[in-house]
């Protein structure tokens, strides 16, 4: 929530997009990070011209903040290590997943095409 306030100025710039969860949490992440999700990509893609593309705000009303947060975390993780070369140590993401949100996370990932 704090982030929300800080990043407010950049909300509409191309660089950042905001993802809003069911319970109103907002996560501002870089556009190229968000674009790793097929769904988010088409949502904010400029070519399609939907409402989200103009506003730069993506609502994900089906999932809780905790899930969306984990998703955002994973997207950043993927962005960072997706192209890592072998000698680099890739931390295991699995450890960071809490069992209680696992199933929900799985469905959300399917929904977002991750």
């Amino acid at each position: 929530m704090n982030n929300d306030v800080e990043m407010k100025n950049q909300e509409h710039s191309n660089e950042w997009v905001k993802i809003v969860s069911q319970d109103g949490f907002s996560f501002v992440i870089k556009r190229d990070v968000a674009s790793q999700s097929g769904t988010l990509k088409s949502m904010i893609g400029t070519g399609e011209g939907f409402a989200e593309a103009t506003s730069g705000v993506c609502n994900i009303p089906d999932y809780r903040g905790a899930v969306v947060e984990k998703l955002a975390e994973f997207m950043i993780y993927k962005k960072m290590y997706g192209h890592a070369s072998p000698p680099e140590v890739i931390p295991d993401f699995q450890e960071r997943i809490y069992p209680e949100i696992a199933l929900e996370l799985l469905m959300a990932a399917d929904y977002l095409e991750l």
Binding site: F74, F93, Q94, I97, P99, A102, L103, L105, L106, M107
Partner: peptide, 21 residues
């Protein structure tokens, strides 16, 4: 996310998602 899926499923504690209307 596929890396997550198999591990997550094994956990006994997973609760079914509340089916929202």
């Amino acid at each position: 996310m596929s890396t997550v899926a198999p591990g997550a499923r094994k956990k006994q504690k997973i609760r079914p998602i509340k089916k929202r209307a």
